[in-house]
Structure formats: C-alpha cells, structure tokens
C-alpha cells in the first residue's frame, strides 16, 4: 500500500508539471498582454510599453520565463501579481479558502439531503417514492447550475429579499479573520452576527452547487443499496433474524465506498467547477479570481490559481483513493494477500 501511495504521489507531481506547462503556454497564447490592458486609456509611448514589458519579464523567451517560474514555484513562490503588485500567494490564500468553504457547505448539504432520500428510495424500491426521487435526481442533474443560481436570486433575493444576492459576508458584521473560513472564524470569535451573515450568504450558492452532487450521490447510493440488498450476505443476515435498522446499517456500510468515491470526485471537480457559479454569486473564490486575472492577463495569478485548482483536484483524488482502500474491506484484504 505504501508503494501504491508513493507511485500516486510521483504521478501527482508529473500531472502538476503538465498542468503548469499547459497553463503557462495557454495564458500567453491568448491575444492581448497585461501591459496594454493595464495601460488602458493612458497615453504611453512605445518605448515605455517596452520598458514595462521587460519590467515584468515579458520580453524574455517563453522557455526562459517558464524556467524562472518553475524555479521559484518549487520554492513555494508563485510570483507577484502584475496588477496588484502583491505576492500571488496573498491573493490565492483567501480566495482558495472562500472556495473551500463553499464547496464544503455544498458537499455537506448534498450528504444531508442525499443520503436520507437515497435510503428512502432504496427501501421503497420501485414504488412511487422511488420514482419521484429518481425524477428529482434527474432534474438536479439537468439543471444548469448558473441558471439555478440566477433563478434563486430572482425569486429568493430580489423578490422575497430572504437572502443576499451575492458576496460572502456583510461588511458591517465586523468579522475578525483567523482561519479564513468565515463560519469557523465567526464561531471561534463568538461573533453571532457574523455567523448569521456568513450562513445567510452561503445558503443560495451552496444549494446551487449541491444540486448536481446531490443528484449523483442519490443515484450512486441508491443503486449500491439496491444491489447489496440482493446479495447473499444480506439474505443470510435477514435469515438470522436481524432487525431492519441493523440490517440497513450493515448495508449502508457496504454501500459507503462507491458513495465516498463519487463525493470525492465531485468535491475535487467542484473546486474548479464553481467558476461560473462564483461569477453569478460574486463569491470571492478562486474561480472569480482566475476569471478576473484572465481578463487582466495577470499571468502569475492565472498560473498560480490554476495550479492550486489542479493540485487540489489531484490531492483530493489521492485522498479519496486512500479512504477507499481503508473503507473497503475487500480491497484491504486483496492488498494484504498480495
């Protein structure tokens, strides 16, 4: 198992290297360059433009730029933002935590909603409740996330005024930042007003985010439960006269691995997939930061942001694999027997 893990780690490094090359090239292939963009309507001579380009190292050959970037990146230095003049890490940190907070909220919501519904559907397999659930899952699955977001803003924010239309917390809540996860910070500092505000801001984006993952969670868990219920060991347990609750607990344990995998994969892809949603809800996360940086051609921020996204995706998959091995007795035995 250690060998597998080491292999996977090595692969992770290779994958990140590929990603860095791709993003480095792509961002430079897009027409328009940072200097021209930030100059905007300023009156600037051609010489000064050239000077600004060299100030940011943009006049060097791409391969040299990449070398310099890589040399610094391995030391944890992702460079400085061209437009804001601060280290990229200072911008990425809070944005990453904002995204993580949203993704965690969305995932929790999917679990809280999805697991009971899947259980219900599996128990009532083939009956009305099951069919309604299936239809719901398909609805969630087919709903374009950004449209769902917009519709919730329209009805729940604009017309009913129940939730804010966007952002992460009310400015006036006066939250002290410690961890960067606002809900956690509010609890630590005992700031109830900030907690309320942070939760209120989280509701709509996490529902939009959870729509698709709840649907896939329900599908997978329900499917696993149904097929497990037809397996021999369940009949054996049933024959031994186990009560229904105990029986379902056993089944749930066995259905957990595929469900954890699908949730892990979704968690990983949500980190990168929330870009459009973050735009809709002005959620100050990684996606919004990268979109802004692409517009401004702030190369270091785009590079750093995409790398962080890809790294989280890869690391989450790694963790999911490990959990899978730990959870699934069959795999564990297979490993031991080798």
């Amino acid at each position: 198992m250690l060998q597998t893990l080491l292999d996977r780690l090595l692969q992770t490094v290779v994958v990140l290297l590929f990603v860095s090359v791709i993003v480095f090239l792509l961002v430079r292939l897009i027409p328009g360059d940072p200097v021209d963009i930030f100059l905007g309507e300023a009156t600037v001579s051609d010489e000064q433009r050239a000077m600004l380009r060299s100030e940011h190292g943009l006049d060097r050959p791409i391969i040299v730029q990449y070398g310099a970037f890589l040399a610094k990146a391995v030391q944890g230095d992702l460079g400085r933002s061209i437009t804001q003049r601060v280290p990229v890490a200072e911008l990425l940190g809070p944005a990453f935590l904002a995204t993580i907070e949203l993704v965690i909220a969305g995932t929790l919501l999917s679990v809280v909603v999805g697991v009971p519904i899947a259980l219900l559907a599996a128990m009532r397999h083939g009956r009305t409740a099951d069919q309604v659930t299936s239809a719901l899952a398909l609805f969630g699955y087919s709903m374009p996330t950004f449209w769902l977001g917009i519709m919730m803003i329209l009805v729940l924010s604009v017309h009913l005024g129940w939730f804010p239309t966007g952002g992460r917390i009310a400015m006036s809540a006066g939250l002290e930042r410690h961890t960067g996860l606002f809900v956690v910070d509010a609890i630590i500092t005992g700031n109830m007003r900030a907690l309320g505000s942070a939760l209120q801001h989280l509701v709509l984006p996490s529902i939009a985010l959870a729509a698709v993952s709840t649907a896939s969670l329900m599908q997978v868990l329900r499917g696993s439960l149904i097929s497990i219920s037809q397996e021999e060991f369940v009949s054996a347990l049933r024959a031994r006269g186990l009560g229904r609750p105990t029986l379902w607990r056993h089944m749930l344990r066995n259905a957990a691995p595929p469900t954890v995998i699908i949730m892990g994969v979704r968690f990983g892809s949500l980190i990168g997939g929330g870009i459009v949603l973050e735009t809709v809800f002005s959620w100050p996360g990684l996606g919004l930061l990268i979109i802004d940086a692409i517009r401004a051609r702030d190369y270091p921020v785009v590079q750093g942001g995409v790398l962080v996204m890809a790294a989280s995706f890869v690391i989450v998959s790694l963790v999911v694999d490990v959990i899978h091995i730990l959870l699934d007795p069959r795999i564990r035995q297979g490993e031991a027997g080798r």
Binding site: V15, L16, I22, I30, I275, V276, I294, A310
Partner: peptide
C-alpha cells in the same frame, strides 16, 4: 499521465482559455 493532467484541469477553464485564444 497526459490524460490525467488534462482531466485535472478545470474543464470550463480549458474551454474559456481556448475560446479566448482562438476567438
């Protein structure tokens, strides 16, 4: 490995980047 790297890339970003490059 190339495919893994590709899949690790947030795919909406890839699409955005490509449309931005190609117009």
């Amino acid at each position: 490995r190339l495919t893994d790297a590709w899949l690790a890339f947030p795919f909406i970003l890839l699409a955005i980047a490509f449309v931005a490059v190609l117009g």
